[in-house]
Computed example of a mutant assay.
Amino acid sequence: MHSSTHTKSQRDIIAGGIFLAIAATFGFISLGYEMGTPLRMGPGFIPLTLAIILAILGVVIIVSGIRKNETVETSPVSWTGSALVVASLVIFGVFARQLGLVPIVFLCTALTAFASRNNTLLSALTIAAAMSILCYLIFKIGLGITLPTFGPLFAL
């Protein structure tokens, strides 16, 4: 059942607020770790940098939502999609070390891709493969993170 309302973009304002809350949480937690320098990053550097970027994005989205005056079509919440996103976060946190970078990114990206009704099996697997390759290149080759490429579950 869809309804239509004429209002400021409450979705943008709420989304921006959620981004700010997540950014504040991760930013605060990252302050407990060594920062290092841009050339010799410590364990807190990337989380703090991402938290700052997320906070800036949150502020931009809130300001955009305040400035908008639009008609919004509302639809029911996709509980299946929400559950898939939450499940992928939990799986990443629990199994990242056991599976390794490439398999965990592939699995979690595929799950979150299925959260959208617009993705097919082929498109979800393609997105997952592309993200796995991209994360390998950025985090293993570029930044040299210590998470294994393939974890102990894949050892023979």
Rank of each mutant, 00 (worst) to 15 (best):
V59P: 11
I66K: 08
A24T: 04
G144N: 02
G58S: 05
I66C: 04
L147T: 05
F26A: 00
W79F: 13
F95Y: 02
I104E: 01
L50I: 15
M131T: 00
I61V: 06
S88L: 05
G100K: 01
F95M: 09
W79G: 06
A113W: 06
C108N: 12
R97D: 05
T112P: 02
S30K: 03
A51L: 09
T126F: 11
L101C: 01
K140V: 00
A15M: 03
L99P: 02
N119T: 12
T71K: 15
L107E: 05
L48N: 08
S123D: 13
P38E: 04
S64G: 15
T149P: 10
A113S: 07
L107W: 00
T25M: 12
V86C: 07
R67S: 02
L20Y: 01
G17A: 13
T25Y: 14
A110E: 08
A24F: 14
A23V: 00
S4K: 15
T80R: 13
L121H: 09
T149S: 07
A113K: 03
S75Q: 14
V94A: 03
T112L: 04
H2Q: 15
I127H: 05
N119Y: 13
F139M: 10
T5R: 13
L121P: 11
S30D: 02
K140C: 00
F19D: 03
G16N: 10
L134A: 06
L89I: 04
L107H: 04
L89H: 07
I91L: 11
F26H: 05
G36I: 00
G36W: 06
K8L: 11
S9M: 06
I14E: 08
C135M: 10
R11L: 12
T80M: 14
P38M: 07
A129I: 10
G65C: 09
S30W: 01
S4N: 14
V94G: 00
I138Y: 00
V102K: 09
V59S: 09
G151V: 07
I104M: 06
T146W: 09
F139C: 06
F26E: 00
I13P: 04
